[in-house]
Amino acid sequence: MFAYTLRRLLTAIPTLLMISLVIFLLVDLAPGSPMSEIPLTVPPEVRQKMIAAMGADQPVFVRYFLWLKQFFWVEPMYLLDHVFGTDFAHGAQRIISWQSKVPVFTLIGERLPQTLTVVGSAYLVGVLIALPIGIYSAYRQYSWFDQAGTFFAMVGFSVPTFFTGNVLILIFAVKLGWFPTIYDTNLTVEDWPSFYKMLMQMALPVTVLALFNAAEISRYTRSSVLENLGQDYVRTARAKGVREAPVLLRHVLRNSLIPVVTVIALGLPTVFGGAIVTEQIFKINGIGAALIGAINVSDLPTVQTITFIFAVLIVAFNLIADILYGILDPRIRYD
């Protein structure tokens, strides 16, 4: 298991390096970069100073390696300092946002909690809805419940979240007035009324994201349970007189959840991508909104860093899914 994990870890490193290079070069070499947006009326020597102040006068590869070093070395140091009150970083230069002139990671630290609250609870709710639906659909294959489940999963795949989100706003916020349309980020939960307010404002975005996730996960669960229901060990269990509930919940469920767990892990990064849209609909100022904001003012360091964080998430969860699969299913380890 250790060798397996190590091998997976080692293959993740070149992938991450390649992705970081792709992201950096794509953003940096594009024609729409802010260097070309300095007005022509600015005198050349001032222009030179402006570019130098942004650190953009160095050759591309110097800037790339500096950015890599800052991302993987300097910023973790600051994180350690922040948590333990040490001084490892010695005031080394951090990745600075061109827009707000504060370190990009400070910005992300401010935005991440909102995204995590909404995305995390949405994913949890989605999984909790999807698993029972998937299991029961498989157990009663081709029943009306299964048919309805298939249809709703198809609708969940096909209807874009920006449409479901706006329809929900239209019905529940505009027409019925049950929920607020805009997410109030300044709200802190300290007592029951504020907790209730938090629940109310989270209801719509969480529903939108959860429905979208539940569609995919319930399909995977269904097919995985179906596959296991046809296995010999199920017939054996039934033949020796095990009741239906233990057969389904103890024997079948254990085995069929193995691929589902990996799908859940693999799906998490895509949810962050989906959160970009949801944050835009409900005006949540999370990390996705920060990305859109940075793109619109061509704040390159922020765009590069947030995009790369998404990439790190994808690679990390791929790794987690692989390792989980290895732990749960011993047959996988010896490939």
């Binding site: 024609p31 729409g32 061509s298």
Partner: peptide, 23 residues
Amino acid sequence: TDLFLALPLLPLLLVMMFLFRDA
């Protein structure tokens, strides 16, 4: 192919649209 699968596609698409659209 694996590399492309690990790219954060939506953010990259947004960046590509923004940077190359006017050009």
